[in-house]
Simulated assay, not measured.
Amino acid sequence: MKFIEDLLGGLFPGKNSKVAIRENFSISKEEEDKALGWMNSSEGKAALKRIYDNYHLKKAGVNKAPEVHVLQSPYANGFAVSFQAPLSKADFSRIFIGLGQEILGMGYRRVSLDRKIEEVHDLVRVTEKFYFKPPLSAADLDNKIDQLFGNISLEKIYLNNKPNFLKVLVTVYADRLYLKAAPFDRFMDQLFKAD
C-alpha cells in the first residue's frame, strides 16, 4: 500500500509538501561579454577589490559591507558575499557571471549550470549554480593528476526574488591519484586578479 500512498501523495500533495524544481539553463554570449566588460571597468574592479579586501578583513575579525563570510575546512574552502550596499542587483548578477568566466580562464571546464527553485520556510529560494572541474586527463597513468585548486562551485541565491548571497566553494580531491591542491589563498588572488 505504500506505493499507492506515494503515488497519490505525488498526484495530490498535502499542505506539508515542499516544491522543488531543478532545471538546466544557459547564459548568452552577450551576457558573458557584458559581465566581463563591467568587471574590467573601474566600477567592476572597485566592487571586486572591495569583496577581496573584505574577505581578508573578515579573516582578521573585521566586518565591512558587503559582508563576506569565510568558509574553511580541511577539504573545502570558500567564501560567501551577502547582498548589501554598495552592490546593486545588476552587480550581483555580473559578479556571478564574471567570476564564472574567470574560473574558466584558470583552466577549468564547466560541468554544469543549473537552477533550483524550492520552497523553504514559506520563502521561495532560487539557487543558480555553476560547477567546474579541473581539466583531468588519464593520458599518463604513471603520474598523479593535477587537480589545480580542486572542484569549484559558484552559487547565486535569491530569496523571494531578491538577491541574498553569492557563494564560492572549492573542494579538494583527497585521493592518492591526485597531486595536492594549490593553496586557497592563491585561488583567491587569481580569481580577483590580486597577484
Rank of each mutant, 00 (worst) to 15 (best):
E43H: 01
L48S: 08
S82K: 13
K29L: 15
H69S: 11
L179F: 02
Y131V: 07
L166W: 05
E23A: 09
G107E: 09
G61S: 08
V70D: 05
N16H: 08
N40V: 09
P163Q: 05
L99P: 01
Q101K: 15
R110W: 02
I145R: 03
D140H: 05
G10M: 02
K34N: 10
H121L: 14
L166H: 09
T127Q: 09
L154F: 12
V124G: 01
R186K: 13
R94A: 04
P74S: 09
H69P: 00
K167A: 12
V70K: 05
K49S: 14
V120I: 12
L48T: 06
R94Y: 11
N77D: 12
D175G: 07
E67T: 12
D140C: 01
S82C: 04
N63T: 10
V81H: 01
K180L: 06
E67G: 01
F79H: 02
I21W: 02
Q147S: 11
S137F: 06
V68K: 01
Y55G: 05
Y178I: 07
F25Q: 05
I21A: 03
L113S: 04
L191Q: 03
R109H: 07
G150W: 03
D114N: 13
R186C: 00
V126D: 09
S26K: 13
K18A: 14
E30P: 01
I157G: 01
F130Q: 01
D142R: 14
G100N: 04
F165L: 11
K129V: 08
E5G: 00
V120A: 12
L71P: 04
Q190T: 09
F187R: 03
S112I: 08
M39Q: 11
K2F: 00
L71W: 10
I152F: 07
P183V: 06
F96P: 00
R125Y: 04
Q147T: 11
R94G: 00
M106L: 15
E118F: 02
T127Y: 01
I95P: 00
A76M: 10
N151M: 12
L136Y: 13
R125L: 10
L7R: 07
F83R: 03
E155S: 12
F92K: 02
I27H: 04
D33A: 15
R50Q: 15
A174K: 13
